[in-house]
Amino acid sequence: MKKVMYLEFERCIGCRSCQAACRECGGHDAKERNYVEYIDFFESRQTFPMMCMQCKDPACAKVCPANAIQITEEGVVLSAMEEKCIGCRNCTFGCPFGIPKFDFEENKMYKCDMCYDRTKYDISPMCASVCPSDAIRFIDHDEMMELRRRRTQMNLIEGKKPSENDKWQYVPEFFGVYSD
């Protein structure tokens, strides 16, 4: 996989296309794995999309007592294997970003797998494909770095200078599978 997922929360218009599209993806069993939420509907209509960062060293897999969360060779963190998952929900508490979902009925965890059946052929995941506002994008690693640089410059213009320790807070989200 040569491309990464890239999120810009402010662009989100709250249409939830990504969630509808997530249900369409192969292996998703008509359940969406991503989130679109209001920051505070009382104050503003700002929403944000949220999905899995596909961590290199995923906390969810590390807290799973059944060793059910596997990582593909491309680096995609998959949903818990249905046969192994014992339904303890440790992953939902371990994940620092609150991503894995749990189905009490079927007693299993499910999560974003970056539409593995598409991205393994370098085809954009459903959520990024349909996102009408480009809040979710599936782009080249270089393009992502370029976008991040631009955003960092903007923050500098506004008088807030990121330091070495917190600069990740100043640039938009990017995640996904890429080689350094």
């Binding site: 939830r16 369409e24 349909v130 009408p132």
Partner: peptide, 8 residues
């Protein structure tokens, strides 16, 4: 290729 939830 973009679609809204109705389109999807």
């Amino acid at each position: 290729g973009k679609l809204c939830p109705k389109g999807v």
